[in-house]
Simulated scan of single mutants.
Amino acid sequence: MASRLASISVDLDSLHHYCRIHGLPETVLDARARGLVYAKAVPRFRELWGALGVPGTFFAIGEDLADAGAAEALRQAQAAGVEIANHSFSHDYALSRRAPESIHEDLARGEQAILAATGTRPVGFRAPGYTLNAALYAATAARGYRYGSSAFPAAPYYAAKATVMGALALAGRPSRSVLDSPRVLLAPREPYRPDPRQPYRRGTGTVVELPMTVTPGARFPFIGTFAATLPMSFIRAAYLACRGSALFNFELHAVDVLDATDGIPAELVRQQRDLQVPAARKMERLATLFRWLKADADTVTLREAAERLAPGL
């Protein structure tokens, strides 16, 4: 068995969240576009994982599961072996800035929605917008989560996000996204137990943190959007730089297997440029990357990764 671990996870952010990021009115989306994540993206990821024989983790947003079709798609994914984890109920980018009782309520509602859809309570959590703080970490600990996967210590991503948010504000179309504390840039790259008071530092917290993979040194993010669109030579070099990690935590989003022909409005495609890349081409690229992971590491769900890594942290 390979000593290294690798996990593939997908945030099931619906398209209206991208409208919020880009300062677009959600009215640009019709009912079909609002349902594309569960109608198209979820089956495509299941097809990829099934064909390659690798497991995956879906981070679901609770409010989306009020739709019967979405709930059924999630139930079928779990029945096929996909882990379902909590990505909050409302995907409020400012969740970490709420009062503690409000944070607890949001997590609880997300858990209940997933439980109702799948029959299983989630044990993993990822914060909306990757933004973690002491109050949010405390809520996951109090609610008995086994792991979190919110830390994203990617300096280029942080700088790009700050630039885009500033440009949108100047254009009079402010983003509803939130810029995290600069402390995240110094967070560990490897799995760790956080300090509950400062969860981007090592400590003795009960909820293991599984950061998303970034390269050593420059801390370039190895995530779906970049891996599916940048030159393959660059991606291969970044991949090789990360091979020494105890856990290769490859994070993607549902839009990484969608494109403009799926019925996404032109206004959003212009802003979210990876949607201009054909979905078939992106899926071919992702299949290649998943094969690399399968060949180089023991591919597991994030839940299993946390269980195997926790005793040594």
Rank of each mutant, 00 (worst) to 15 (best):
A246W: 05
G166H: 04
G148K: 04
G119F: 06
S177A: 15
G205E: 12
H87Y: 04
G53F: 03
Q276R: 14
R281L: 11
R75E: 11
V10A: 01
R202K: 13
G124T: 13
Q271T: 03
A266L: 08
G148V: 04
R189Y: 00
F250M: 13
G148S: 15
R202S: 14
A162K: 11
T118C: 02
L12G: 01
Y157L: 13
V257S: 02
S175D: 12
A167L: 15
T229I: 08
A139K: 07
A169G: 03
A70P: 02
A227M: 15
T140Y: 03
A31S: 13
A139M: 08
S175C: 04
Q76M: 13
A113P: 07
D262L: 03
S7V: 08
V28P: 00
L5F: 10
F250K: 10
A228L: 11
G53N: 05
L132A: 05
A227Y: 04
I84L: 13
Q112C: 01
A155M: 01
F290H: 05
L258R: 06
R193L: 15
L247R: 06
W292G: 02
V255L: 08
E251H: 12
V178D: 08
N249P: 02
A85R: 09
D195K: 03
T120N: 04
A68C: 05
Q271K: 14
A241E: 14
A295E: 14
R285F: 04
A135L: 12
V54K: 05
P25I: 00
Y38A: 15
C242N: 10
S150D: 05
R243I: 12
D256L: 06
L95I: 10
Y130H: 14
K294C: 02
L252E: 09
S233V: 08
E251C: 12
S14C: 10
F89P: 01
R303C: 09
E190T: 09
Y200W: 15
A6N: 07
F248H: 12
P199Y: 07
R173T: 12
L302P: 06
A80F: 02
A155Q: 10
A108K: 08
L240F: 03
A305N: 08
R202M: 10
Y200A: 02
K294Y: 02
G244H: 04
A134D: 13
R308H: 01
V82K: 01
E83S: 06
H22Y: 15
A280G: 00
L15H: 00
D259S: 05
Y147P: 05
A77P: 02
A116Q: 13
G224H: 07
E267T: 09
T131S: 12
P100N: 06
S7E: 09
T288K: 00
D92A: 15
G110K: 13
T301I: 11
E304L: 05
A73M: 09
L240P: 00
A6M: 06
V54E: 11
L5T: 11
V257L: 09
D256M: 07
E307C: 02
A287T: 15
E101P: 00
A306D: 07
R98Q: 14
P194H: 10
R98S: 11
M232A: 14
G50M: 07
A305I: 10
A138G: 13
A227N: 08
W292L: 03
K294D: 12
S3A: 12
H17M: 06
T301D: 08
E105M: 01
L302N: 13
V277G: 00
I61V: 15
A167G: 02
D92G: 11
